[in-house]
Nucleic acid binder design. Structure first.
Lengths: 214, 214, 214, 214
DNA sequence: CATGAATGAGTCTTCATTCAT
DNA sequence: AATGAATGAAGACTCATTCAT
C-alpha cells in the first residue's frame, strides 16, 4: 500500500509518487478519524514523511482533499468502465454491470465507504467536492437513464417513469452504501448488491432471465 | 444575522430554554458550515448569546453535539409516532405511514438533512453518535420488519425474504435522503417519498390498492 | 468543621459567620489543591454555598485570600499569646514557649502547613501577603531577640551575636516546618519541635536545665 | 524587555538551545510573578519567541515546569558535586562543603530562591515536582547523614542522634533559604551561610578548628 | 526535493465577576 | 441575603502554513 521507494532513507521521489503516497495516507486517516480530526501531521506520519511535504506537493490541505476525492472518483470510474466494457449489449446487462461495479470489492471497502460519507457529509457547503464528484456521477446517471429508457414501455408518462426508475436505482445503491457503512454487521457487500439487483428485477421483470446466476 | 441589537441585555432564562436555543443554533451552523467548520463562536453568535454560555449549559462542545443529535432523533421519533398512531391497522398502512413520516416536512428539511449527513459522516469514529441514533433506529427497524413479515407469504426462505425486504425499504429511504441532500434540484421531498412508496407497492403488490390516494 | 447553621435549607446568616465559613473552605481547598488550582467554585462547593456568595461577602478573590491569611495569622497569634502567658519569666522559658507554640497541634497541622507554604510561595510578588504575615512575625521576632539578648553574655560582638541567635532560631523553626510539609513521613510535629529545642539548648547551655521534661 | 526588535526574524536553532531558552524565561517569570500568574505568553515574550514554540518544544505547560525544576535541580547538583570534589577528606570538611554549596552565588540567587519556593508551595499536590526534586535531595541527605555518623560518638542512641543531626542541618539550610527569600533585607547569602556553619560547629565542636578561615 | 523549526491565528475551555430575580 | 444565569477576558493548546537550512 502506498509507494515506498526505500524503507529507511527516503530520497527524492517523483512528484506523482509523493502525491499518491500522501493521498493514500489521507484516505487512511480520514477513514479512521474522519474529517474534522484529521490533521496534516496524521497524514504525513502515516505516509512516513516529514511534516512539511504536504504544502510542498499540494497548495493547501484543501487541495490534498480535492485530490483525494479526485482519486477516489477516478478509481470508481475505471472500475465502472471495466465492468461496462465487459457487459453484454442489452440494457439489462448494462445496468446490472453498473450495479455490480458499485459493489466491486476494490471500491466498496469499509475504508473507502467511510471516506465517501465523510465527503458527502461536507458536500453541501463544499461545492468543490460536489463538483469533483459530479463529473463522474452525471455520466453514470446518464447511462442508467439510458438503460431505463430502453426498458420502459412507451406510454403516457414514459419520461416520468424513466426518471423515476433512475432515481430509484441510484437511491437504492446509495442507501445500500450508507447501510453498509453504518451497520456493517447487518449486511455485507454481496448481500447489498443482490438486494439492489433484486429490486431491479422487480422493476423490469420482463428484461431479466427468471434466474440470475449469481 | 451577526447584528447585535444591544450588548445582549443580560437576560435570565431557564436552563431548558437556553439549551434548546443553543441546539437550534448548532443545527443552523452545522447545516451551513458542517461539522469541522462549526465553532462555538458561530453557535453563540447565531443564538445571540455570549461566548461562555455553551460551557455553562453543556459540559463541552461534544456534549452540545450529542444533545443536538438527541434532539433531532427525538423530533423524528415524535413525528414517527404521530404518523403511526394515525395509521390504519394493516401492515401496508403502517409501513406506508412510516415512510410518509420520514418525508414529513417537519423533519425532512434541507437543513436537517445536512445535519444528519454531517453526523453520519462522523458516525464511524464517533460511536457516541451511532449510539444515540440507534436507539430510535432499532425501534423503527423492528416495526418495518414486523410489517414486512405480515406481508410476506410463508415459504422456504420466508425469514430471509423478510430481512431483505426490510433492508431494501430502509436503504431506499436513506438513499432518497442522500439524493435529496446532494441534488435538491433533482428531486424534492414529495417526489422522493412517492418513489419509495412506488417501490414498496412493487414489492408487495397484493397489499396495496391499485390506486393510492396521494 | 465550619459553621453550618442548618444542613439543608441555608438561610440568611450573619456576615461574619459566612465569612468564616468561606475562609475555612478556602483553607481546605488551598491545602488540597494549592493556590493556582483553587477556584471560587471549589471554595463555595466546599462551603456548601452558592456560587455568587464569595463576591457578595468579599470584594474579590484576592480579598478572600487576604482574609484567609489574616485568619491563619490571628490563629497563630492567639496560640502564641496563650503559650507566652503560661510561660515562666526567664528568657529560656519564654523562648521555649515560643517554639512550643509554633508546633502546637492546633496550628501545626498538615493542612495549615500546606497553606502557609502556598502563601510563602507567593509572598515575593504579593507584597500584600507579606504585609499581613509580618504584622505578627515582627512581634515574634522582637520577642525572640529580646530573649536572646538576655541570654547572650556581654562582649565585643554582643549585638551581632544576638542577631545571629535570633536568625538561627527562626530559621530552624521555618526549616522544620518546610521539612514537615515536604516529608511528613520523615518527621512529625513533636520530633521537629524537640530538634529545635535541642538546638536551642546547644546555643545557650547555661540557661537550660540539664534535662528537659518533654 | 517587551521590545521586539524585528518580527522575530524566524531563526532556526537546535532543540536544546530553544528548550534552555524557554526554561530560563520560565525561571524569570516564575520568580517575578509566581506560578499561578505565569502564563505561556509571559514566557515566550521574555524569550522573545513566538507563542507556539512552547508547545512545539514541550508537550505542555506542565512539561515545561517539570523541565524547569529539573534544570534547577541539575544545576544545584553540579555545584554540589563540584564543592564536594574540592573538599578535604574529613567529614567536617565534607559537610561544610555541602553547606557552602547550598549558598553558592550561582544557585542561591533571589530569583532561584523564589522559584524554589514557588515549587515547594505546590509540591504537596504536585507529586511530580516532589519526585523530580527528591532524586537529588535523597542523595544529599545520605551524604549529610554519613558525615554526621562519622562525627557522632558511639553510644546508646547513636543512630537517633545521627538522624537528628541530619534533620537539624537540613532544616537549618532550608529555613535560611526561606528567610533569605522572605526577608532579603535581614540577611544575605553569606551571613546565612555562616549562621549555618556556626550551628554546625556548635553541634560538633571537636571536629572543627577553633577558627574558620572564611 | 526534503526537513523540521517557527509562526500566529483561531479553538475550546475556565473562571472571577456581575446582576436580575 | 442569597441564588445561579450570564458575561467576557484570558489561558492553554492546535495546526495549517511558511521558510531557513
Amino acid at each position: 500500500m502506498g509507494v515506498k521507494t526505500t524503507p529507511a532513507k527516503r530520497r527524492t521521489a517523483p512528484r506523482e509518487v509523493r502525491r499518491k503516497q500522501l493521498i493514500m495516507a489521507a484516505i487512511d486517516s480520514i477513514s479512521k478519524r474522519g474529517f474534522a480530526e484529521t490533521t496534516l501531521r496524521h497524514v504525513t506520519e502515516k505516509a512516513n514523511l516529514s511534516h512539511g511535504v504536504v504544502n510542498y506537493h499540494f497548495d493547501s490541505k484543501e487541495a490534498l482533499y480535492d485530490a483525494t476525492l479526485g482519486f477516489l472518483t477516478q478509481e470508481h470510474y475505471s472500475v465502472w468502465t471495466h465492468y461496462l466494457d465487459a457487459a453484454g449489449p442489452t440494457p439489462a446487462e448494462r445496468i446490472e454491470a453498473i450495479i455490480r461495479a458499485d459493489f466491486d470489492k476494490k471500491i466498496c471497502t469499509r475504508k473507502r465507504l467511510a471516506v465517501w460519507f465523510a465527503f458527502w457529509g461536507q458536500a453541501k457547503y463544499r461545492p468543490n467536492y460536489l463538483k469533483i464528484h459530479n463529473r463522474f456521477d452525471n455520466e453514470r446517471h446518464d447511462e442508467i437513464a439510458t438503460c431505463c429508457a430502453e426498458m420502459t414501455p412507451e406510454g403516457a408518462n414514459q419520461s416520468a417513469e424513466i426518471a423515476r426508475a433512475a432515481r430509484i436505482i441510484e437511491s437504492m445503491v446509495d442507501g445500500a452504501w450508507l447501510c453498509l457503512m453504518l451497520y456493517p454487521e447487518v449486511t455485507d457487500r454481496e448481500v447489498s448488491r443482490d438486494d439492489c439487483l433484486h429490486t431491479l428485477r422487480n422493476m423490469f421483470p420482463d428484461h431479466f432471465p427468471t434466474k440470475i446466476s449469481n
